[in-house]
Structure formats: structure tokens, C-alpha cells
């Protein structure tokens, strides 16, 4: 099936050359002395009904992308198009309407729930703000939402601290669902959970996606989790996407040397004794002062690394072995037909 062939449906979200820089202010006058280039010119689509995972290590910019996408942060430049509308141009009224269609779930379910509000009132508030149910329907809707995420309707009368971490994350998911969104950005939604509870929440997210036809942007540092949940994966390094493609292909046949190193470093139960992680030399450069050329070149273990890598930033382009990667040393795809596998 050629989902991305010319003439097929538009993507739900289209991100074009997005950058987000944070000023570094120093001294008495708080003068701007430089910029942290947290997100540095990235382009990708999120297709209807898919789960696109954004992976990378701390400081790579994945969380900034997630927040900028929902306009919790303003982009420095570039465009975010949601269902044909430029998100940056929305006025207050339109932004409220947008927030009904796009929601976010954070890592820490404690920090994102008001401890003084019962679970019922947390959900009611959202429903009321968006004018989604009259008084009579309110209770029924709260009950529906709690059952959808596997909680007891009687839980509506309890407070967040009375729940375990996994249950609190279910409450946060119920709150996101309350507005009947199409798109959910999930920023490390299972990272704070115990292993035995993580699987339950991952299964819940999959069930809800099917039931409510949701599209997910799933931000995570955990590659095993990403392999399980994602249809496609984008790997970030120093504010740039270095590889993007179909999840199976990317995990089976990583193209970019950074993706390869990342996959090799994961500690896996039952790994062969001779599987050694690819050790990256040096430290992660500062996003305030990223290397010239390919951002990965100072740490890149590729044997053919050369002057081009040190001077010219590689474009993100289709590669022979699978999806798209930004590396001078990986063979490009001969037949440069449109779209990706």
C-alpha cells in the first residue's frame, strides 16, 4: 500500500523547517550572548492514525519539538501545519479549538494533576471549559472516560495522591481524551512507571488509538518501548533529525551511525555475549555551539569519516537501505521516487 503516494491524503501534521532557539542571557543587563539551538531546522509529517516516535538522548530537542507542535512554546521559525491550518497563525479563539483536537500527556503524572481536585472535578473542568457536555451529561461523560482508561467510575470522588503512578497516568490520559482529540502528543508517558505497570499503559494507549482513531506523536528515550508502539520513528541528535523511517526497517537496518550506536547500547536481556555496544568517543557537544558540518561528526565511529563530514551538513535524504538519513557516508537510494516505504 502506498500511503504516501502523490494524490494520497494530506498528513495530519506537517512540520516544515521548524527551529526553536532559546536565548542565553548573561551579565547584569541580561544581554543575549548566544542561542541554544534546541530544535534546528527539522521537517517531518505525522500521518493520520499512525504513531510516530521521536527518540533521542537528553538534550536532543525531542521534548521541545513536542511542546512547540502544540504551541506550548512558540517556534523561532518554520511552519507547523495541522489539518491544513498554520498553527502559528491561530488567534485565541482558534487556539482553543485547536487544543480540542490536539492534546499532550506528560511524563510525570504527579506534576500534571492538581492535588486539591478530585479526579471527577479534573475531568469535569476540561469538559466544561470546552463546552462539551451539559450538566446532566457531565456525570455520564466522566464515568465513560474513567471506564475507557480502565478505572472505576467510583474513583471520580478520590484525589490524585490516592492513586498509584500507573493509575495517575490513566487519569491524565482520561483528561486528554475528554475533549475527543484527534492527535495526542505523549511525552515520555511510561518512563516514570514501574516495568510491570508500563506494559498495561502501553496496551491501553494502543487500545485507545484503535477505538478513537487517534494519531500519536510518542516522545521517548526508551528504544524498546518505541519499537513496540511506533509505526514510524524519527531519531534526533543535537536538534536535528538524523534518521526517519518505518519502525521495522529502522530497527532491523539502521542507516545512520548514530542510530546504530544507540541501538547497540541498549542493554537487552538474553543478548549474545559478543554483542558489544558501539562506544561513542567524546561528549555530547553543547547545542549552544553545535559542530560545523555534520553535527555528529566529532563522535562518529564511521571509518570513512572525512573532510566533507567536518564541513558540510548532510541533507536528510532517502537511503538505499530503508528510510531517510542525514549522512554523507550512507549510500543514497538510486531510484529517488517520491515518498518512503
Amino acid at each position: 500500500m502506498k500511503r504516501n503516494a502523490p494524490g494520497s491524503v494530506e498528513p495530519l501534521v506537517s512540520v516544515e523547517e521548524l527551529t526553536r532557539h532559546f536565548p542565553i542571557k548573561k551579565g547584569l543587563l541580561r544581554r543575549t550572548t548566544g542561542y541554544i539551538r534546541a530544535v534546528d531546522g527539522i521537517t517531518f509529517d505525522v500521518r493520520h492514525g499512525e504513531t510516530l516516535a521521536l527518540v533521542g538522548e537528553s538534550g536532543c530537542g525531542k521534548t521541545t519539538v513536542a511542546r512547540t507542535l502544540l504551541r506550548l512554546l512558540e517556534p523561532t521559525s518554520g511552519r507547523i501545519v495541522f489539518n491544513g491550518e498554520d498553527v502559528a497563525q491561530l488567534n485565541r479563539q482558534q487556539l482553543l479549538a485547536f487544543r480540542r483536537r490536539a492534546q499532550i500527556i506528560f511524563q510525570d503524572p504527579f506534576g500534571s494533576l492538581n492535588p486539591r481536585m478530585t479526579v471527577g472535578s479534573v475531568l469535569e473542568e476540561v469538559i466544561r471549559v470546552h463546552g462539551l457536555a451539559e450538566n446532566g451529561g457531565l456525570q455520564r461523560r466522566v464515568t465513560e472516560l474513567l471506564s475507557a482508561v480502565g478505572l472505576d467510575p467510583a474513583d471520580a470522588r478520590r484525589y490524585p495522591h490516592q492513586f498509584s503512578g500507573g493509575q495517575r497516568q490513566r487519569i491524565v490520559i482520561a483528561r486528554a481524551l475528554a475533549v475527543e482529540p484527534e492527535f495526542i502528543v505523549a511525552d515520555e508517558p511510561v518512563s516514570a512507571l514501574d516495568v510491570s505497570v508500563q506494559a498495561q499503559v502501553l496496551n491501553l494507549l494502543a487500545d485507545l488509538q484503535e477505538r478513537f482513531h487517534l494519531t500519536y506523536l510518542f516522545v521517548s528515550h526508551d528504544l524498546s518501548v518505541v519499537r513496540h508502539i511506533a509505526d514510524r520513528v524519527a531519531v534526533m541528535y543535537l536538534g536535528k533529525i538524523v534518521e526517519i523511517g518505518d519502525s521495522e526497517t529502522l530497527f532491523e537496518n539502521p542507516q545512520h551511525p548514530y542510530t546504530e550506536a544507540l541501538l547497540s547500547a541498549v542493554a537487552v536481556v538474553g543478548a549474545a555475549d559478543d554483542s558489544r555496544p558501539i562506544v561513542l568517543s567524546g561528549e555530547l557537544p553543547s547545542p549552544a555551539n553545535p559542530p560545523r558540518g555534520c553535527p555528529f561528526h566529532p563522535r562518529c565511529p564511521h571509518p570513512e569519516k572525512d573532510e566533507v563530514c567536518r564541513t558540510t551538513p548532510p541533507p536528510l535524504e532517502a537511503k538505499a537501505g530503508g528510510g531517510m538519513a542525514a549522512c554523507h557516508k550512507v549510500v543514497g537510494r538510486e531510484s529517488s521516487g517520491p515518498g518512503q516505504p
Binding site: V195, S196, Q198, A199, D222, S224, R227, I229, V268, V269
Partner: peptide, 11 residues
Amino acid sequence: LLRCLPRLDRK
């Protein structure tokens, strides 16, 4: 515990 871990080598 071992079974509920997502796997890197298969889906």
C-alpha cells in the same frame, strides 16, 4: 516481568 518487557529485537 521478563514477559512484559517490550523487546528491542522483535515486535
